[in-house]
Design a protein around this nucleic acid. Structure first.
Length: 800
RNA sequence: GCGGAUGUGGCGGAAUUGGCAGACGCACUAGACUUAGGAUCUAGCGGAGCAAUCCAUGGGGGUUCAAGUCCCUUCAUCCGCACCA
């Protein structure tokens, strides 16, 4: 019927030559910044899932432009990091070359979809004049004391030969390859993210993230209020410090537990009479994978530290100390006070090892289980008689502070960000080590520290970065004293480049600054940020942290980067399972564009269902959308001159403008498409439609199917290109029907429908309802109790 | 275990937020036009029933003139977190 491929190419070229989507940094218009997460240009090419979210935000961008906004809708490439490096190793090409090729493929695929990105602002995180600024910002962290080098026991993947952040080692397995993670000590660059816990929490108030995304952020930060309490060690001046959220139960402490890695074990190895047994336990624990260790359902294990005791500071009781792997090294102080009567885990442990259980809160049956509820305090010295948790905690905190044995503290799950990676394909950390001067930052004038061109970029067996093998790169001079010195060979994590990229889009060609202040002041927060739910914790947290740090140091003018954050659902295979090569249910967007056209693919992916929910692919569904576009195309033969809406269509056109506008705004694309289908159905019923009718349909459909609508607009000589048109306005009065069919119920069951006029009063409607044949039949011989008339909705007659 | 989400025809999904459940699309059925149709058009399409009507939004209960929508309870599926002291 028509050659969609030709039409698509034609209009894509038109938009390009007319700079239709280039955003201006100097505009009188209101700004609107729409951002989609930039992709990894992976070797497997674009996924239909990308098409969904890009098209969705593209529709929003196109509508906003027509509404008169200056829209920034940029695209770039997150090209550093493990996936790119592993792809390069596997395919025996330099990562630089692999990335270049993959970007080319990705970009071509994206352009074939007619997405209205502003390509003049495109960059990759691997561009030297981008990562120069990533390095520059790292130096700011260093300069402000927010980056430090620390010896940390890190998560080590023996398969990938790389250190992983806690986040990447979730569940005790490597996120990339699934191999169990081991522990290894290593000097690491670390960013003090934990210092920002409260700011990251409070900052959420300035955003309009989806609730589930906010919740995910809050949980990840994991703030809990409690107390640090000092337990003096018996026959020593040393203290064992614990963190507890339940200081009110201090009188119920019958033992303490330290993590197997706790320093106290080594420190008191001479005093612990069963030290060999303890060491054996520790070794066993370290051999266990994280997944085994953190399996909450497994039976508790542990060893008593014989000969070592602590003193309960509130009642001077002598308390035994144990070590067990249910106490984590990296949370709190790595040691706990155990209150078996009122904590499930402690209860289980005490039961197993026959340790005393002392009740301090009444209300449960501690011979059966730990009681964690509220109740009257007993056996509790100063707390006796208190009846609720809040008051007892408050009282105990006061008592602890007055007596100098503890203090109120807040603890966070959020840890510092381990920033080093022993990899080739990342931003080199711009630091130099000098025997004389220690760590010295690379001077700003020498940035970027670039990656050398080498032939081997595979990881070394020693765990060092491949960069360590390149003497010519490693050896340099100290910027401070001029003596021979060595470069840091670790690189940054792939999260680094994505932690400020939205700022760069504002001013992507700037060679003097990472972004100009004017550009940041003009564009401000990202208005709409779309990404996958899998990035709603880490990436979002890192990005917010990074941005907030820049803000605190006067480098950006606003504290939170993203106003709204939304998440798209996944597109599943036709069988309802996640698309994967092994399942053979992968749909290639290129094939779909070839067979049905970009417009049909775009329309279908928006029509597929609720944007936030997962949806199964259906090629028949796509065909249906192609048919819909064909029907819109055929309407062109009905077009006659006319600059006003046809009388028969006036109301529905106004209604549709309203619906489509609101739906695109609120990301309810599926119902927007459906409304346009309904409008098309109405057009088809008539022999003739006016140019005005058709033009409005085409404009409303344009954000969804931009090519065919432009073509039809031109073919029918409906005026200037749609991309330059204004979004249509609607007349609220015309969205309300003069007459309407409403249901008439008798005792809640629909018995008839009547046609009512908008001007009728309740009495008229009531009489009309009572007069209906079928209604009469149902109320005959019965007493009318009351008649409920809801204007424009329903009539309900209650009879007895 | 804790937290979050979801549950509506054969399928994807609508339902102005308490007001005619199933919009729109897919699949399917019958017919028309055709040498042909994976094109197009017309009609039908939750279940039962000739029909009037009855039943139906995971199950059970409740509030209401009126419940997919609100409350209680229960089941199922998916996704997070997972010994966080």
């Amino acid at each position: 019927m028509y050659n969609y491929s030709e039409i698509e190419k034609k209009w894509q070229k038109y938009w390009e030559t007319n700079n239709s989507f280039i955003a201006s940094n100097n505009s009188e218009k209101s700004k609107y910044f729409i951002l989609v997460e930039f992709p990894y240009p992976s070797g497997s090419g674009l996924h239909v899932g990308h098409v969904r979210s890009y098209t969705a935000l593209d529709a929003m961008a196109r509508m906003r432009r027509m509404k008169g906004y200056n829209v920034l809708f940029p695209m770039g490439w997150d090209a550093f990091g493990l996936p790119a490096e592993q792809y390069a190793i596997k395919n025996k090409v330099h990562p630089k070359e692999a990335v270049r090729r993959n970007i080319e493929v990705f970009k071509g695929q994206i352009q074939d979809l007619g997405l209205s990105f502003d390509w003049s602002r495109e960059f990759a995180t691997t561009d030297e004049n981008y990562y120069k600024w990533t390095q520059w910002q790292f130096l700011k962290f260093y300069e402000k004391g927010m980056a430090y080098k620390g010896k940390k026991e890190i998560n080590w993947c023996p398969s990938c030969k790389i250190g992983l952040s806690n986040e990447e080692a979730e569940g005790g397995v490597c996120e990339r390859c699934g191999h169990p993670v081991e522990k290894k000590e290593k000097e690491q660059w670390i960013l003090k993210m934990s210092e920002y816990a409260d700011k990251l929490l409070d900052g959420l108030d300035e955003t309009e993230f989806l609730d589930r995304i906010k919740t995910a952020q809050v949980n990840w930060i994991g703030k809990s209020e409690g107390a640090l309490v000092d337990f003096k060690l018996d026959n020593s001046d040393d203290y064992l410090k614990v963190f507890t959220t339940r200081p009110d139960t201090l009188y119920g402490v019958t033992f303490m537990v330290v993590s197997p890695e706790h320093e106290i074990i080594n420190k008191y190895k001479d005093k612990i009479t069963n030290i060999s047994e303890v060491i054996k336990y520790k070794e066993e624990a370290s051999k266990k994978s994280e997944i085994e260790r953190t399996d909450a359902t497994k039976e508790k294990t542990g060893v008593k530290l014989e000969g070592l005791y602590a003193i309960n500071p509130v009642n001077d009781e002598k308390i035994q100390i144990w070590t067990s792997d249910y106490v984590l090294t990296n949370y709190g102080t790595g040691a706990i006070m155990a209150v078996p009567a009122h904590d499930e885990r402690d209860y289980e442990f005490a039961k197993k090892f026959g340790i005393d259980i002392i009740e301090v809160i009444k209300g449960g049956d501690i011979s059966k289980e730990a009681y964690t509820g509220d109740g009257e305090m007993v056996n509790s010295g100063v707390l006796n008689g208190y009846t609720n948790k809040q008051d007892s905690i408050k009282k105990m905190l006061e008592y602890l502070e007055e007596n100098n044995i503890g203090k109120k503290t807040t603890n966070y799950r959020l840890q510092d960000w381990i920033f080093s990676r022993q990899r080739f394909w990342g931003e080199p950390i711009p630091m130099i080590y000098c025997e004389e001067c220690g760590w010295v930052p690379v001077p700003v004038k020498d940035l970027p520290v670039t990656l050398p061109d080498v032939t081997s970029y595979e990881p070394t067996d020693t765990g060092e970065s491949p960069l360590a093998n390149i003497d010519s790169w490693v050896n340099t001079t100290c910027p401070k004293c001029g003596k021979a010195a060595k470069r840091e060979t670790d690189t940054m994590p792939n999260w680094a480049g994505s932690s400020w990229y939205w700022l760069r889009y504002m001013d992507a060609q700037n060679n003097d600054e990472f972004v100009s202040n004017e550009a940041m002041k003009y564009w401000g927060m990202v208005d709409y940020y779309n990404g996958g739910m899998e990035h709603a914790t880490r990436h979002l947290l890192y990005a917010r942290f990074w941005h907030r740090f820049l803000y605190d140091n006067g480098l950006v003018p606003f504290p939170e980067p993203f106003k709204k954050r939304v998440a798209h659902g996944m597109i599943l295979g036709e069988n309802g399972e996640k698309m994967s090569k092994s399942k053979g249910n992968v749909v290639n967007p290129d094939d779909m564009v070839k067979s049905y056209g970009a417009d049909a693919l775009r329309t279908y992916e928006l029509f597929i269902g609720d944007y936030e929910k997962d949806a199964a692919w259906s090629e028949n569904g796509l065909k249906g959308c192609k048919r819909f576009l064909d029907r819109v195309y055929r309407l062109k033969d009905k077009v006659v001159d006319g600059f006003v809406y046809s009388k028969e269509l006036d109301n529905i056109i106004n209604k549709t403008i309203k619906k489509v506008t609101n739906d695109i705004e609120s990301m309810k694309y599926n119902t927007a498409v459906s409304a346009l289908m309904i409008l098309t159905n109405e057009f088809e019923k008539l022999d003739k439609i006016t140019k005005a009718d058709y033009k409005t349909l085409l404009i409303l459909l344009n954000p969804i199917a931009p090519h065919i609508t432009e073509e039809l607009n031109e073919m029918c000589e409906l005026g200037k290109a749609i991309v330059n048109c204004n979004w249509p306005e609607y007349d609220e009065a015309k969205t309300i029907d003069e007459t309407k069919e409403i249901g008439v119920q008798v005792n809640g069951k629909v018995r008839a429908t009547i046609e009512v006029n908008i001007n009728m009063d309740d009495e008229e409607i009531k009489n009309l309802a009572l007069d209906h044949e079928n209604v009469k039949r149902h109320i005959e011989g019965k007493e009318i109790v009351k008649v409920i008339v809801i204007k424009g909705k329903i009539v309900n007659i209650v009879v007895k």
